[in-house]
Design a binder for these strands. Sequence first.
RNA 1: GCGGGCGUGAUGGAAUGGUAGACAUACCAGACUUAAAAUCUGUUGGGCCCUGUGCCCGUGUGGGUUCGACUCCCACCGCCCGCACCA
Length: 850
Amino acid sequence: MSRYNARVVEPKWQQAWDAAEVFRARRDPARAKYYVLEMFPYPSGRIHMGHVRNYTMGDVVARYKSATDFNVLHPMGWDAFGMPAENAAMEKGVHPGDWTYKNIADMRTQLKPMGLSIDWSRELATCDPEYYGQQQAMFIDMMDKGLVYRKNAVVNWDPVDMTVLANEQVIDGKGWRSGAPVERKELTQWFFRISDFSGELLEAIDGLEHWPEKVRLMQQNWIGKSRGLQMRFALAAPAGDVDGIDVYTTRPDTLMGANFIGISPDHPLAKALEAGNPDLAAFNADCRRMGTSEADLETAEKKGFDTGLKVKHPLDDNWELPVWVANFILMDYGTGAIFGCPAHDQRDLDFSRKYGLPVIDTFFALDNPVPVADEAFVPPKTEPVQWVNHFAGLDRSTGQEAIDATIHYAEQHGWGKGVTNYRLRDWGVSRQRYWGCPIPVVHCDDCGVVAEKKANLPVELPRDVTFDKPGNPLDRHPTWRDAPCPKCGKPARRETDTMDTFVDSSWYYARFTAPRAETPTVLADAEYWMNVDQYIGGIEHAILHLLYSRFFARAMNLTGHLPKSAIEPFNALFTQGMVTHETYATRGKDGRPVWRTPDEVERTEAGATLRASGEAVEIGPIIKMSKSKKNVVDPEDIIDQYGADTARWFVMSDSPPERDVEWTAAGAEAAWRHLQRVWRMTEEIADAGDGAPDSDLERATARAIDEVTKGIEGFAFNKSVAKLYEFTNIVQKSPADAGAKRAAMRVMAQLMQPMTPHLAEEVWATLGGDGLVAQAPWPVADPALLVDDTVTLPIQVNGKRRSEITVPRDMPKEEVEKLVLANDAVIRFCDGKPPKKLIVVPGRIVNVVV
RNA sequence: GCGGGCGUGAUGGAAUGGUAGACAUACCAGACUUAAAAUCUGUUGGGCCCUGUGCCCGUGUGGGUUCGACUCCCACCGCCCGCACCA
């Protein structure tokens, strides 16, 4: 008997699939289509287990849908622009383009042996001029439709390297390379008007029925619709030409509890006051030394500076409130100014206590009318409260009622108006970097900002650039910037900003429907293939990438590149968990951990040691595989050792797809053993002819078909795998003859095909299956074989299981009750008392309440 | 800080209002073998009286709803993801 040799078998079937063009997607209006897409990878150079898991999930769906007679589109591409290529250029002197295309070639070589059912003829990379040229065409169309504009926005500026830093390049407020304190700097930048779509993007979430509830919630909260009051606090004495401060609040009902006005350090008034107030200028400068990320601002210590200005309370001319600059107020949200109400906002309370500002209660809990001390009283808006301080004579009402009443009152008296506000900001797409899609615009002294002519697209990146100096190489290129004005033809200068890489990934799903077209899309193809029926990717993309894609699909519809039916591009979304592994470390001389790869470590029951030296190894937490912690297992090694099917089987087994999976050597070994067992069972019956059916085996087969199918349909691949283990055990132990087992094992091959396609082909071919199992129709379970004649009902007494009875499936309730009351255990536990209640759930359980 | 999620044996998990621990791993015992590996068989949540078809406890912690809660609700603890220039 021969051992199953994946190294020989897997390439053989991959060639057979290629030869038959099994995975080539062709538009065929006569057939129903199914579009499966996994989030495309960044070409870092190596595939990792997260990729293996992600693409295997998509492959299971694609192969299953194909077997159920859908015309499947399952493409692959590369999210190929971005910072790592420029970092590599700086560190190793390699050109970002060369580095990227080499990585793509390497990763393709690693991916192909996985046997994924991908139509490789549609492969694309976002850094191909063929791709980004079409993106530039759409940018121009979006300009025409008024979806693009320029405005000032702040960036993280490294004053030593003279370059813009990404948030992740700012560490503790300092530039990652220079170590210099980062400054916030204003630049003129390009923006997409995504906030014009706030309301629509929010409302349309209701229609995304097959998206995870958590993602829908996160998007709703991100868009952040709020109803509030906008009003003006008049300055007691005008400061220059400023005579008031506009404030937006979602809790106008607490206006009588106001004790200060807070403005952002970036607020125009705060800036205007700097000139005559060096201390304030220093305070603002200090605030601006932080990075731009919201998490930084929100977690920083709350600080304020009293400007000395006063405003009048809109309801009482004699009541004056101080104006403070506070570091936690965001210029980007609302008007960049708030009124503080410490009694009902914890942050305002902390701030007020710190600076000795008064605390004024406006309402109490109905059952606890005490003044606020160290904890702000912030009940849900639906909870009724007792008012102690309200101008409109409110007595008892919920927060929401009070808000509505206040807005109404303010509008009637003319000192404020109700407005609907969104947290979502416009999408800044400018990047001052080389390795991205050039913004196709020319700056002309006479004509201003002019879009490039479409005939001149793509505006290609120049190849001859250097990375010896920080900053944008496009800015210092000797000739690239020179271009004639598309309008008047006079010498002018190209825009040197490139686009955010989120733009690249916001429409690749549409490009896959016609990847070689000379327009961004081809409507007939887009109409046939869109939408993506199943999108699969990481939860880390729950907000930005998915929201930007939803916006972009709408923009593409407005510019004629997608049909109206495709404005929500992803019908169903699945977010998969990460692949994790234990971490291993030894201690360096300075006591700091020296991370070790699993390869270096000998793992035993008791602990772990270094293979090379026997030195003790500390076992750390199980975390996402990452290069920095070295807890990585290279899929290529696993495929070399066990074959692709083992890797695929392992990542599908055990853990539910949405949860993290821990890679363990023992688990991989077990997967391999199972596949070997299936092959052994196949060989044992290979030479027998087909024989008489066996009814037990037929029932087991029907159940396996039913449950494996349900598992795949419900994205519970781990359950499908468990059922296949069970089915294998049943077939192996079955006393049926080889002929009957052949039929069962052919179904086994069909059911395993989505997960372990190579082994499935080999089993199928060995047992006389017709053609390729990859092209065989999905097996159907005979419903008659799925129902049992009898059921076993557990009997509970007072909710505790005490006994069970086996009865015919359709036995009437009354007869079941009689049997239960006559049951020995029931009599014993009732202890002579009559049952109070008898609950019979047909086919499930019986509960006797005493 | 704000928003979202997760928590079940030694381990990954199953059960989504109805028998908690399917299936797998690990461990232990047995068969086969000169031996080992592989393979096959069996046991395994904890505890108690091992007399039973026996009893008690058990799903992060504490409370609640229900005939019945891993599942629903409230509070807390721990971990993970996102926070707009990482992709």
